[in-house]
Every structure is written in structure tokens, then in C-alpha cells.
């Protein structure tokens, strides 16, 4: 697993003096889902954010160690962060569509990157929405405001938006925790579908969700990686008592 194209090497993230992520080496195999679990404040979201350099926006955040994507160290000063972020889609806990029409939400990223041809944009909007299983629900009202959609639809719109720039990796930060069970099921189904094309890293507090959709699971505690293995192994026979306690709900 150590020669995966997407992996971290001794990654630490500091907020000022505070070490939020401690020396984590983790690989994300292609076309699979890796779930990051652990109690709140254990550094899993910070870890996720550092994978597409979102922590750049937080001025006190400092990164040590390396993150490799396709043989490139993404924190290398020579790396073009704009190009990098095209390869990595990200979806947050709270749906956050732009205050624009459904169509514009999806066409937005491709427009950034210079696609102006209307037919080409239409095509991208349709395929992205189809991949996010939203096309049939919105195809007749693409010009309407994205804020008129329900929460679950908004979240799938955000996934479609992330897919619009054709990333190879998708980072999901608790994408279903603000949704009702039906929408959650749809998002989970979607993740399982998208796995055929993308590497997915998902932070989740929902143990059943991690067990249902992920292939690998990493358990974080106080900024450290405690255990990383196949989801099956972690959920049936973890190496550590602490992991066992957490997933069975006795702790955390």
C-alpha cells in the first residue's frame, strides 16, 4: 500500500503551537473509499483539509511532512495550487451552493478554467448532475436558484459541482451529517457509485456509514493515527482495544 499514488508521509499540521495532526503516514488506494473516524477534535478534518491545501487559508496553520499525489509533493513551493485543486474535489458538512442558478453552480468551475463553449458547458452540467444522481430531479429547472433545492438536493448539487472539474480524488467532510435518512442513503449510494472512478476520502461520525461505504478505515485519536486497515478488519477484529471501544460506542 505504501506505493499508492496518493499518500501522506509523516504529515503534521500545527495551529500556532498546537499540533492538531501528528506525524501521520497514510495511503489512499485508487478507486476505493477510505473513511476517517475518531472523536471530535481528533484532527481528522484538519488532516482532510490539508490534502487539498485548504489550510493555506488559515494563516497560523503550518504543515510538516509530505503529501504525494501522482508523484508530486503538493506542498512544494513549485506546485500550482490552482491546478492541484482541480484534481481534488471537496464537499463540506453543510451544503453551500453558490447564490446562483443550479446551472451556474455546476458551470462555474469549468468556466474558471476557460471553457466558454455553451454546448460543452451544457454537456458538463448534465454529466455532473447525472453522476450526482440529481439530473432527473432538476433538469426542468436548471435556471432556478440553487437555494430553492432541499438540503439533500443541495448537498448532491455540491457533489456535482465538485465533479464538474473532473477530479481524480474526492474529499468529503461529513457530507451526510446534516441530512435526513433518505438523503443520507442517496448520498451513500452515490459515493459507492463514484468509487468506480475516483479515490474518495470521507470523514464521518457515523460508524454504520463508515462500515457500509468504506473499503479502508483509519481511526484517529488526539491527532494521531491509531489504527488503519481494511474496514472489514477494523469493524470485526481491530488490533487495538481503543478502536474496538470507539466503534462499539463505549468511548468517544
Amino acid at each position: 500500500m505504501n506505493n499508492a499514488t496518493f499518500r501522506t508521509e509523516h504529515l503534521s499540521v500545527f495551529y500556532g503551537q498546537y499540533e492538531a495532526v501528528k506525524n501521520i503516514s497514510l495511503s489512499f488506494p485508487e478507486k476505493s473509499v477510505t473513511a476517517l473516524i475518531g472523536p471530535s477534535g481528533c484532527g481528522k478534518s484538519t488532516f482532510l483539509r490539508s490534502l487539498n491545501r485548504m489550510n493555506d487559508e488559515i494563516s497560523q496553520a503550518k504543515i510538516k511532512g509530505r503529501i504525494w499525489i501522482d508523484g508530486v509533493d503538493i506542498n512544494d513551493p513549485g506546485t500550482d495550487v490552482i491546478q492541484l485543486r482541480q484534481k481534488i474535489g471537496m464537499v463540506w458538512q453543510k451544503p453551500n451552493p453558490f447564490y446562483k442558478s443550479i446551472y451556474e453552480n455546476i458551470a462555474f468551475g469549468p468556466k474558471y478554467h476557460g471553457i466558454k463553449n455553451k454546448a460543452e458547458l451544457d454537456e458538463i452540467v448534465e454529466t455532473s448532475l447525472r453522476k450526482a444522481a440529481l439530473w432527473d430531479e432538476v433538469k426542468d429547472r436548471l435556471k432556478q436558484s440553487a437555494l430553492s433545492l432541499s438540503g439533500g438536493q443541495q448537498q448532491r448539487l455540491c457533489i456535482a459541482r465538485a465533479l464538474s472539474v473532473k477530479p481524480g480524488i474526492l474529499l468529503l467532510d461529513e457530507p451526510a451529517s446534516a441530512l435526513d435518512p433518505v438523503s443520507t442513503a442517496k448520498v451513500e449510494e452515490l459515493i459507492t457509485d463514484l468509487k468506480k472512478e475516483l479515490s474518495i476520502v470521507i470523514v464521518t461520525h457515523n460508524m454504520q456509514q463508515a462500515a457500509r461505504i468504506s473499503d479502508y478505515t483509519a481511526y484517529f485519536y488526539l491527532g494521531s493515527l491509531m489504527e488503519h486497515d481494511t474496514t472489514e478488519k477494523i469493524f470485526t477484529n481491530p488490533e487495538q482495544q481503543m478502536t474496538q471501544d470507539y466503534i462499539s460506542g463505549r468511548f468517544g
Binding site: N52, M54, E57, I82, Q83, L84, R85, Q86, I88, G89, M90, W92, K94, N96, F98, Y99, K100, F108, G109, Y112, H113, C158, R161, A162, S164, V165
Partner: peptide, 24 residues
């Protein structure tokens, strides 16, 4: 999240300000 989503799509700061933040 609005700003970050724009960054995550590979937008520059200028594009984010002029096309996401200001219109909103």
C-alpha cells in the same frame, strides 16, 4: 464554505472575490 468551495474548484482569490463573493 462558500469561499472555500470556490477555492476547492481551483479558483484564484481574484476569481473567488469577483465571481462568488461580490455577487453574493
Amino acid at each position: 464554505g462558500l469561499k472555500e468551495s470556490s477555492f476547492a474548484l481551483g479558483a484564484t482569490r481574484w476569481q473567488t472575490i469577483s465571481r462568488v463573493i461580490l455577487p453574493t
